[in-house]
Design a protein around this nucleic acid. Structure first.
Length: 771
RNA sequence: GCCCGCCUGGCGGAACGGUAGACGCAGCGGACUUAAAAUUCGCGGCCAAUGGCGUGGGGGUUCGAGUCCCCCGGCGGGCACCA
């Protein structure tokens, strides 16, 4: 299926589903990122970034499948082999477009503190990802310069441990490693082995640590007559720091494992507090804590922090190094060698170099007539699309055939929603009105990449004159996923939940054949596991409110929820129950004009208190996004109405109190079950002018929130020994006296001396006793 | 390997450092019914039960810990080309 047909069909299906669920969305603002009307604006943005120096082209390593002749995503590399061809994957260097997110690293970090409506854990993850560190950059002089390379630059956060050095290690992609490999076949073989490892950091860091001794040696910056071996090591990342490190095994775990494996020396230079310098040795664990410097010449007797400063000063004086701030964050590679994406709007000209597509030629539209019969990017072998004239010199030139990472599409769509049909990317006045997004919602899997890219893009759009805000999302909520049991038949094939049946004896069988089906894990709904349920079938059976209610009621929204048939049926029962309550009152002929009775029977007062406590509790729970708690409070209110039904009829004011309760139920349930709420409202208030959706949110009557009595727990030595009933806010002396008099407690206090009395008003009393 | 979370009855979960298990699901028992469904009422942490033990395990802080701190275990998210 052509990606365009597939995509538009899915959009239509999703749109219909969202509408059937009754979600209140402004469909006049709908757009699709695969529509040239959107990605054409994105191309304009990119050219602005290019002019502002926020986009540039440089070489980067990619996973290359030599058989399929295509770039592979990390996900497509399985155990070092291409997922389709099975061929060993190689790292290959390609020229790629990058967006300079690192320009904003300090601000992206500093501004995290002000995102006070973001989850703490997301902010922590971003902080670590940006990874600011203070350290030193220093050059190690090579004994024998190679190919004009006389020094190896190293970044370290531990310049205090320089005297504990036992080797220098560089990444396999390091230029010096390439020089060595060019003349040493063994080195070349090692580099090639590393190159077969793929580009993912998880794979590199989890791999067995291996190295190759180049035979080269470097001089210690502080010890003129001492030199160290230079290794190529598979765990050194070219992307971080300078692509080379000095190894200090005594105080770095990875260096220690490497040194033990290759028999390199381990010299402790930081003495932990309380240890004896003569006796201290490093075993299987590197010592990374604080301490006093030893075995380190002029750094001896300093503490770690002072030694860092002293070492940096010395390096600077010698002109071989300096203190620097380093960032873990790397620039964002946005080039993809794929068809289905937004074309990168530049033209490559042999004479003029990279030339931006002129504004009047935008959008650069993705061609529809492509073939997928050959490996590689279809745009590359399209017969005509890439052949154009250079906008500058009019000679034959070629279009860029890379498309953007789809993360680019999602990095500014929220701004486009402010003015979805504007002729420019973002209408500034509209953006000023709507931005920032008050409440953004997404899965935790977006904690770093998407949310960081969006924060970067917002800054870049601000600096290129499109936006006035710096942060895109004022509030962030990370919701869980919908999960379901999975089922597999005897034939090993997955079965859809609709295809299986749970029998009374608990066994699960195939509906069609009656054969036993094995029940697998509860996991994220996915087509491949066939553990999905069809929303249309649910809506047809229960209406839209039942799934809405069930999804909200099952668990806190930040956790995954498990869809079960029993849970859906339970939610449906509640829908029916609440509706019956409204229907029972539909014909009673009363309405809002009814005058509130002058007094209420005890039972009616109890119901009124339940109503107003529910209003307060549901309001609070909704504001905290504790939807499952709001649901529980609404069950309690429904139960309170049922309890009141059982009271003998004719209790003073009961009819009024019951109406108030059911009316409150309709109003409180409305954000979660809007259709039910309106049905109830129409029956309770025939001919009402306004919908529930148009009415103000109910407010609790404060006088009805206070309890008539509170139960105070009484503890002796922190253990619960009894409870007493007290008027609310009773004086401490009265509560303590009553607590001491409680029969069981009094028995326990007999013959003991009370050392301390703790009283927490309306909650607890605790007696601490002696003897 | 590194970063970040999570762990409470049969299950989902509730609980400003203050009576652990609200509320629901499933289960069991009763009512209603010729019967079933539906509805409705009630009962459910564990144990050698006037007491003791219980929030993944072990320690600590506190009058008091599910909640705070340290260590360990298990599970999950991310690791830059899945998006």
């Amino acid at each position: 299926v052509h990606p365009a047909a597939w995509t538009w069909e899915n959009i239509a299906a999703m749109r219909a589903e969202l509408q059937r669920m009754g979600l209140s969305l402004d469909w006049s603002r709908e757009f699709a990122t695969c529509d040239p009307a959107y990605y054409g604006q994105q191309q304009k943005l990119f050219l602005d970034l290019l002019r502002a120096g926020l986009a540039e082209r440089r070489d980067a390593w990619v996973n290359w499948d030599p058989v399929d002749g295509t770039v592979l995503a990390n996900e497509q590399v399985i155990d070092g082999r291409g997922w389709r061809s099975g061929a060993p994957v190689e790292k290959k260097r390609l020229s790629q477009w990058f967006l300079k997110i690192t320009n904003y690293a300090p601000d992206l970090l500093a501004a995290l503190d002000r995102l006070d409506r973001w989850p703490e854990r997301v902010r922590v993850m971003q902080e670590k990802w940006i990874g600011r560190s203070e350290g030193a950059r220093l050059g190690f002089a090579l004994d024998t310069p190679t190919d004009g390379i006389g020094r190896v630059e190293v970044y370290t956060t531990r310049p205090d441990t320089l005297f504990g050095m036992s080797f220098l290690a560089m990444a396999p992609e390091h230029p010096l490693a390439a020089s060595v490999a060019a003349r040493d076949p063994a080195a070349a073989a090692f580099v090639a082995e590393c190159r077969s490892m793929g580009t993912s950091e998880a794979v590199i860091e989890a791999a067995e640590k291996k190295g190759f001794d180049t035979g080269l040696r470097v001089r210690h910056p502080f010890l003129a007559d001492v030199s160290y071996p230079v290794w190529i090591a598979n765990f050194v990342l070219m992307e971080y720091g300078t692509g080379a490190i000095f190894g200090c095994p005594a105080h770095d775990q990875r260096d220690l494992e490497f040194a033990r494996k290759y028999g390199l020396s381990v010299v402790p230079v930081v003495l932990p507090p309380g240890e004896d310098a003569a006796a201290f040795a490093v075993g299987d664990e590197a010592y990374v804590g604080p301490g006093t410097i030893i075995n380190s010449g002029f750094l001896d007797r300093l503490d770690v922090d002072a030694a860092k400063r002293a070492a940096i000063d010395a390096l600077a004086r010698q002109g071989v190094g300096a203190g620097v701030t380093n960032w873990r964050l790397r620039d964002w590679g946005v080039s993809r060698q794929r068809y289905w994406g937004c074309p990168i709007p530049v033209i490559h000209c042999a004479a003029c170099g990279v030339v931006p597509v002129p504004d009047e030629q935008l959008p650069v539209v993705l061609p529809d007539d492509v073939t997928f019969d050959r490996p590689g990017n279809p745009l590359d072998h399209h017969p005509s699309w890439k052949h154009v004239r250079c906008p500058r010199c009019d000679r034959a030139a070629t279009r860029e055939t890379d498309t953007f990472d789809t993360f680019v599409d999602s990095s500014w769509y929220f701004a486009r929603f402010c003015s979805p049909h504007a002729a420019e990317p973002v209408a500034r006045a509209a953006a000023r009105h709507w931005m920032a997004v008050d409440q953004y919602i997404g899965g935790i899997e977006h904690a770093i990449l998407h949310l960081l890219y969006a924060r970067f893009f917002t800054r870049a759009l601000r600096d290129t004159g499109h936006l006035d805000v710096t942060e895109p999302f004022a509030g962030l909520f990370t919701q869980g996923m919908v999960t379901h049991e999975s089922y597999r038949g005897a034939d090993g094939q997955w079965r859809y939940p609709a295809e299986v049946e749970r029998r009374a004896d608990g066994s699960v069988v195939d509906r069609a054949t009656g054969e036993a089906v094995s029940v697998g894990r509860v996991e994220k709904m996915s087509k491949s596991r066939r553990n999905t349920v069809d929303p249309d079938a649910i809506i047809a059976r229960y209406g839209a409110d039942t799934p809405r209610w069930f999804i909200l009621s099952d668990n806190p929204p930040e956790r995954d929820m498990e869809w079960t048939e029993a849970g859906a049926a339970g939610a449906f029962r509640f829908v029916q129950r609440v509706y019956r309550l409204a229907e029972a009152l539909a014909g009673d002929g009363r309405d809002d004009a009814d005058i509130m009775p002058a007094s209420f029977s005890p039972a009616a007062r109890t119901l009124r208190r339940a109503t107003h406590r529910a209003i307060a509790a549901v309001t609070e729970a909704l504001e905290e996004f504790a939807f499952n708690v709001a649901v529980a409070r609404l069950y309690e209110l429904a139960n309170a109405v049922a309890d009141a039904e059982r009271e003998p009829a004719g209790g003073e004011g009961m009819a009024w109190a019951r109406r108030e309760a059911v009316d409150g139920l309709a109003r409180l349930v409305s954000p979660m079950m809007p259709h039910l709420a309106e049905e109830m409202h129409a029956r309770l208030h025939p001919g009402a002018a306004l919908l529930v959706a148009e009415l103000p949110w109910p407010e609790a009557e404060p006088s009805l929130l206070a309890a008539e009595a509170v139960t105070v727990a009484v503890q002796v030595m922190g253990k619960l020994r009894g409870t007493i009933e007290m008027p609310p806010d009773a004086p401490a002396a009265m509560v303590l006296a009553a607590a001491e008099a409680e029969p069981h407690v009094a028995g326990l206090l007999q013959g003991k001396r009370i050392v301390k009395r703790i009283h927490v008003p309306n909650r607890i009393v605790n007696f601490v006793v002696a003897g």
